[in-house]
Write a protein that binds this DNA or RNA. Structure first.
Lengths: 343, 343
DNA sequence: TTGTAGGCGTTATCAT
DNA sequence: ATGATAACGCCTACAA
């Protein structure tokens, strides 16, 4: 039976030092009104006694948790984990911790998570929407109370709030135009759920590029899925079985694009000459696969940093914060999967 | 100026219903002593008033946060993010949230994080050690108080606590022996920091396999690093420039192994015939790269699930928990990078 | 410079 | 079945 160590409180310190708990509390946070000697002595005693503050009590009283909530689809996706790293870097620098939860792309879970975040009184919330989400009133808990709320990447049009996004339309346009310049005439598109801004805008950019260059739009060449590995395979297979198959694919993410490359490789179809492929995200994989994948570099880490710093700025500005959207630059990275031999 | 919504408390509900806060509190948690009608009425009023519990207050009073702390090196690593997913799955099922923080492989940050976890009164802590960590007394805050503590993967020998690991020795032995069976005679090893159990054991397994097959150990073929992408390149380069270069590499992770493959590919060195490569972890990349990478599948997700469920079991057993180590099975995945043509 | 005392929102204890 | 009250640990006006 191990000895059970009790929690040391400011009262214990006060008692031992024959001073008041208030003085201890102030000394521990370097309150100006406490003398240097007292402060030093208190801190020393606290250390000796193994005192560690109870954040719960402190937060309850002060109405401040020094915690930022982060609500994402799932942490084990390259884009998301980089985003989180960016958030953490800034948060930590400012003395904040982060509280992460996953929606698993389910609306119901997202709603529960938002409530849980509120219940634990996070000082602000950063959200990238679940794939499934179509309603947004669960965020009113935060907006109604002017608790800082920042959306990242997958953002809702329907809410007035701070948003950090990339220009999906422009990036998709550039990517598609690049394929056209390579001489591709029948360009397919792997699209995501169209009620999500990012996938909607990417498709729009794709269509706009086709239109600009007077290429016809063939609905048979446009697919919708959640862009997973398996979907990538099956979509590629179906497209290549068409009587009039595509000569290029612009995929709304890298995962599906990579599956396309793998499928083509297995079938002996040359990438890029028979099938050019462009992805979106610039996952680490993109540079590793052979042929390497042309894609749109998504500044995930930076988005996280900006989201966190904007969130922390909101606190100060009280309630006159205009809803503001920050658009970050993407970078089009041309690699082997799209550059055709000169003919 | 937006209307500022106030927080609704159980007092507000009690007042409106002309009952006591105690009854409200009980009704909201389905306490057996409260009548069905009252319970139903309270819940309805709570919903109408937009009541959301204050977790801080509840936790402070009940001494229970329903939160599991997770302390890892960094979230944006494939192994870690899968581990976290596993933890979250189990935690959520049992009504727990998780609180994540990153040590960035720095001991000092790990120490701070452990204190912060304690201060926020997590009900238990799951840890994968920072690369830098060599002392372990910062965990005594938890062990002294019998707060459940589980180490995963990178675990300390020096602490009596629950541990979840894989058999790194056996896995490394099997991997190395496989290379020997392929006819490799000079097998190099990319090792990690040797004070970390996993890297230490992997090296031991490697050495044991060489010894069993009467192959000499050449220290020049053994490197130590943090096994990053860049290190993988430079180590491969250095090894291949030796007057007597290796014909195989067993790397303690996939990242460095993949760099080795890429380096060889660039230099026109045939993998596996001129240089066979085996990695460790089975990151998603391993199956994508060409030639695909032979590696040891590390059950990250399952480790997370087991860590969480063992942690939650500890709560019940009060203080007679024996320190226990659970060893999970790995799976050796043979792919192209190690299978030589028959000669 | 330091002390006193009330309160943050909830739950546990003891009563009715 | 319900109510009154204290307590969790800390912070902060107000007082001294």
């Amino acid at each position: 039976m191990k000895k059970q160590v009790k929690h040391v409180t400011i009262y214990d310190i006060a008692e031992k030092m024959k001073i008041s708990p208030a003085t201890v509390s102030r000394a521990l946070k370097d309150h100006y009104s406490i003398s240097k000697e007292t402060t030093k002595a208190v801190k020393k005693t606290a250390r000796n006694m193994g005192y560690l503050p109870n954040t719960l009590a402190s937060s309850l009283r002060s109405n401040k948790t020094n915690t930022i909530g982060v609500l994402v689809s799932r942490v084990n996706r390259p884009f998301i984990s980089s985003l989180i790293s960016g958030i953490e870097e800034v948060a930590n620098l400012e003395g904040y911790n982060i509280f992460i939860s996953q929606s698993l792309d389910l609306e119901e879970k997202e709603i529960g998570n938002v409530k849980a975040m509120f219940s634990s009184r996070v000082d602000g919330l950063i959200v990238s929407l679940a794939m499934e989400t179509t309603k947004f009133d669960h965020f009113e808990i935060f907006t109604d109370r002017n608790i800082p709320l920042v959306f990242v990447d997958r953002v809702p049009d329907e809410i007035e709030a701070e948003k950090i996004v990339i220009d999906n339309f422009a990036a998709a346009f550039e990517a598609t135009e690049h394929l056209i310049e390579q001489g591709c005439k029948r360009i397919a598109h792997f699209g995501g759920a169209q009620h999500i801004n990012v996938y909607h805008d990417r498709k729009k950019g794709y269509l706009a590029a086709l239109q600009k260059h007077d290429l016809p739009v063939d609905e048979k060449l446009i697919t919708y899925s959640n862009l997973g590995k398996d979907e990538g395979f099956s979509m590629t297979q179906q497209l290549l079985e068409l009587e009039n198959p595509p000569d290029a694919i612009f995929s709304a993410n890298d995962t599906a694009a990579i599956s396309a490359i793998q499928f083509a490789r297995e079938k002996g179809i040359h990438v890029p000459n028979e099938l050019a492929v462009v992805g979106f995200n610039d996952d680490y994989l993109a540079s590793i696969i052979s042929p390497s994948l042309t894609t749109v570099a998504h500044p995930a880490f930076e988005m996280g940093k900006i989201a966190a710093s904007h969130l922390l700025e909101q606190k100060d500005k009280s309630d006159l914060v205009a809803s503001k959207t920050t658009v970050l630059k993407t970078r089009f990275v041309i690699r082997e999967s799209s550059v055709r031999d000169h003919r």
